[in-house]
Structure formats: C-alpha cells, structure tokens
C-alpha cells in the first residue's frame, strides 16, 4: 500500500482508530435478505423480463401500425394533410396519371362508406343521363364481390371526372374518366403501354398500395385505380377497356 508508506505516526494512529470505529458498523441482516430477494425477483438486463419485452413489442407494433396507417392514408384527418399526402404520392407517378390518382384518393379513399350501398337506381341518378348506361357497362365487368357505392360527377383541382366507386373486401376500386386537356395523351407522355390486347394500349403505374391502369380514347382518359394487386388490377382493366371504350366512342361521335 504505497500510498500509506509515508504516513506519520499520528496520522497512522488516526487512520487505525477511524477504521476501527467505522468497521464496527455492519449491514443489518434484513438488508442482505431484501437485496437477495430483489435479485431473485429479476434478471439482469440483457435478459429482459417478459413485460419489458412485451412493452418493446407493443411500442414497435404501435409505431409500425401508425406508419402503415399513415402510409395508406387512413390517418390523414385534415384537408391540408390529405392534400399534402395526395401531392406526395402523385409526384411519384407520371403527370398524366396524377389526375386520375388524385381524384381516386381524394374522392374514394378519403370517404366513409355506409355498410350497405344505396340502391342502384338511386346511385345512377347522380349521373347526367348520358353517362347512366356506363354504370351497367362497368358493373358487368367488375367482380361481384365489389359493390357499387357511388357513381357521380366530381371535381378535383379544377378538373371534372365521371367517377364510379366500388367497395368490398376492404378494397376501394375506382373507374375514373375525364376529358382530355388540349394535347394530352399517353402517347406523348413517354409512357410505354404495358399491354395492348384487343388493340387497346393499357398504361400502368403504381405508387404505395395504389395500382393504376389507364387507356385513352380520342377525347377521354380512363383510369382504373385500386389497392388490388397489380396483376388483378390490370386484369379488371383489360376486361373493362373494350366496353368502356365503345361506350365513350358512342358519346364522342
């Protein structure tokens, strides 16, 4: 103990007396018992206790759940936050796809649906007479598990749309039709058609959970947008496209 080698005799004596006095104290027996009991009751960290693990797990679920809900647009309560969300996802697709996607999200995704859809006759009345036959054309091509909840004319960012909304199995499907602006065309948008069956070039895009399939007539852009898997979304559009194109051609002529 080199630190103490040079202690003078008096300091050494003080030290010994001090040690003797302090060492007379001992921890009470119940303290030993209490500490041992505490230690037996818990594992050292690194082996987290079950409730700590449960808390961490719950926190992860809440965070991931919250992120997922936000991601899919369910936590966007204010018009500003919705608009911000639509803007964010629209920026990830080509310009010509944005109008259809924006109207779908704004009008169909941010909407509360009744448990049962209104009768078809009531829904159809929302449309101008010239578009009413479109409802039966589209319904005949949409799988029966998805039911028509709305068919109306709506507007988004100054553009007007014919919008048919189907809902079922927690999915939201939209057929969105809009008149082309001057010079607007998929062919000019540097997009390559994903499929050209039946002579109709179908264009495709996807962002987050949304799948977009689209085609054009001479005066209209037609979008089918849903949160279905990409392949199924395209299958439905392939089924829809010939009849819808025929319907629009009749209108355009």
């Amino acid at each position: 103990m080199s630190d103490f080698d040079n202690l003078d005799q008096e300091t050494a004596r003080l030290r010994e007396r001090l040690k003797q006095a302090v060492h007379a104290d001992r921890a009470p027996d119940h303290l030993h018992a209490r500490i041992r009991s505490n230690i037996r009751g818990g594992q050292p960290s690194g082996r987290r206790t079950w409730w700590q693990a449960a808390l961490v797990f719950a926190a992860i679920i809440i965070i991931l759940g919250g992120r997922a809900l936000f991601h899919f647009g369910y936590l966007l309560f204010t018009p500003e936050s919705r608009e911000s969300y639509i803007s964010a996802i629209s920026n990830q697709v080509d310009g010509i796809m944005r109008s259809g996607l924006g109207d779908h999200v704004n009008c169909a995704v941010f909407r509360k649906y009744p448990k049962k859809p209104p009768p078809i006759e009531v829904i159809v009345e929302e449309l101008a007479p010239k578009y009413r036959d479109l409802v039966s054309v589209v319904r005949s091509r949409i799988p029966q598990e998805y039911r028509l909840f709305a068919a109306h004319e709506c507007g988004y960012h100054g553009r007007k749309f014919i919008h048919l909304t189907f809902h079922g199995d927690s999915r939201v499907l939209s057929v969105v039709i809009t008149r082309k602006d001057w010079g607007e065309s998929f062919t000019k948008a540097d997009l390559l058609p994903a499929l050209a069956q039946s002579g109709i070039p179908i264009y495709r895009a996807g962002v987050q959970s949304f799948q977009i399939a689209a085609f054009e007539t001479s005066e209209h852009l037609v979008y089918f947008i849903s949160d279905l898997p990409q392949e199924k979304n395209m299958d439905i559009m392939l089924a829809l496209a010939p009849d819808v194109r025929e319907f629009l051609r009749r209108l355009e002529s």
């Binding site: 303290l31 818990g42 960290s45």
Partner: peptide, 29 residues
Amino acid sequence: IFRTAYRILGDRARAEDVVQEVFLHAWKS
C-alpha cells in the same frame, strides 16, 4: 458499501435504501 453509505448520508434508513439500489443496479448490469 453499507457503512460507507451510512457515514456519508448519516441516516441508516437512507443508507439501506441506497445500498439496496446499488446492488439492484449492479445486478441489472
């Protein structure tokens, strides 16, 4: 640990609490 805690704190009950905490911290890590 106990006698040092007691001499610093000057109170047996507080010293016991602190010592218990010391050993719990020590065990956890």
